[in-house]
Design a protein around this nucleic acid. Sequence first.
DNA 1: ATGAAAGCGCTAACAA
DNA 2: TTGTTAGCGCTTTCAT
Lengths: 345, 345
Amino acid sequence: MPSAEQARFRPVTLADVARSAGVSQATASRVVNGSARSVSPALTQSVLAAAEELGYATNVQAQAVARGTTTTVALLVSDIATDYFSSMAAAVMANAERAGLDVTIAVGERRMEREIELVRALRAQRARAIVMAETGFQTPEGADRLAEELRAYERGGGKVVIVSRTQLPFDHLDLDNVGGARKLGGALARLGYRRFLVLAGDRRLVTMHDRIEGFRSGLAERGIDLPEEAVVACDFSWEGARRAVSELDDAVLERTEAIFALNDEMALGAIAGLRGRGMQVPRDVAVAGFDDIRSLRDVTPGLTTVRIPLAEVGALVVDVVTGRRDAPALVPATVVLRDSTPLLG
Amino acid sequence: MPSAEQARFRPVTLADVARSAGVSQATASRVVNGSARSVSPALTQSVLAAAEELGYATNVQAQAVARGTTTTVALLVSDIATDYFSSMAAAVMANAERAGLDVTIAVGERRMEREIELVRALRAQRARAIVMAETGFQTPEGADRLAEELRAYERGGGKVVIVSRTQLPFDHLDLDNVGGARKLGGALARLGYRRFLVLAGDRRLVTMHDRIEGFRSGLAERGIDLPEEAVVACDFSWEGARRAVSELDDAVLERTEAIFALNDEMALGAIAGLRGRGMQVPRDVAVAGFDDIRSLRDVTPGLTTVRIPLAEVGALVVDVVTGRRDAPALVPATVVLRDSTPLLG
DNA sequence: ATGAAAGCGCTAACAA
DNA sequence: TTGTTAGCGCTTTCAT
């Protein structure tokens, strides 16, 4: 049967369904999708039956073209193979689903150039919203070009939501990096720590900057000074932190009581670095991180950190995207004390 | 200026570009996309200029409708907030990009019913390929319905690739669960272990079944028997394993020398359970897992496991999708011995 | 309530 | 090389 063979690679279309049900395509369209509920039960039945029978599946592309809009929201992250971003993605997806949205993930690799390309591609996808969770580096010119591309996207009717990155002029969801770090500083001070080392990624990342300054002010409130030399720059990654710690002067390490790494990944890298030097946490030095990523569950001793409630972030993001809530919102961060920073003394 | 206001939420179309450049839409189409390189330099320039000037971005939906095909491949996983799947997703995405494909992730939650829905939705998206990496439960009837949906998808011209062994009748990429587990069994036997406990998820998962049987045969090769009572069922998760271990009889735990958890997540849960009972790894009992997930990097003592090279899986998946390689392929698994299973004796 | 017909933005013959 | 003209599959006025 040649015609069956022919049809082998042709999806069933709405026209097929309509023909098979003996109704107009308009009617078929009305029943297979919600809209104006103005179709008689009888026809509704036969259309549904025909659709089922033929194994019809809507062509969402065509639907999007006709409607001029999609239900896709794009989530731009730095690296999906990361606890932080994969947890956030899961949270956003879970909430998006409830809102009838589907989410697509784009990986920016922390490169502004790439982010710009991605926004462009997402623009081509006619995504309903772009959520920039990416904590990319920002050169002033780069930021301008990115903002320009995002603005073009908005002009096309898209919605932009930035998660925790404030100098871009769009709706954003602030994570309380400053407050969280401040509270951590206070907590560590209360535990008796005085001499710190901060492992910082690139300072141009707003997030990093905020965490440092928050921490510093938390300490300051207790009369503790965090000198500039105590902030050591390194690559913003596990390996970067490990290496930085490995290369530290003995003398420096000797006099530091606690290391604050600007995120948990780096904290874990730092711990690896310490272990490499034969040092133990917290016996020889205390360590604290930021984010409270999943894998801390299996780390011993438990890592003190500042928890960002990613589930909540996911819900807020979707609320902002759907317009059920106005940005900006501030997501609180809370200190979680664990064994890596015991009471000193 | 009312017209500008009007245009505020209307994306720039190809027609706009063509008009602005003073050429036909066909010509504009030819230059903004590759295809037949048959456009004069002069016109090419003006079209490009107009596009740039207007901030044009292709409408990929319309393009897909017109071309009758997309460049999207869908990756179906169980849970993106998981080392295993997020690593795989990263690998697939990295390779897909090189092939000019973009990937969308769908989360099946290990529920067959949901998987079926998802495949249907993916069918509606006209994804070019569906990669089922999901390790879902399979009831016979469920499997039939899923297969039916996938077949309908294929009939529409889509490509199906199953990762890891399945009885589903589609192209698949085998992970060497049997071989890996067998080698692990052998390695542990060589280290002197004789009395094991296997923490198994649901046996209906082919993957689980394969790992148990492989392990058993590896032991058998060294004359060691793995009795059925040594295989304890529990929920296929960290928490499931933790609880199972917590509830084990002292006597049972007393006589087991090593626990083999069917994946690393469960192994880590088991370790947490042991810790909860005041037992230490490997002093009181050895533990081994499977997969070699990322977060093992920060676990102490290091966990012995069987490594699945996810980067390679990503590359193979894309090769199969693009037709550059025929499935089935077998991805090898290798034993990684770490401190959690020291030489016994 | 139902259908005819005109789009949605783009591509791909086919002519010119 | 370039433009004209049909579509692609779906939605949505606008009649009926």
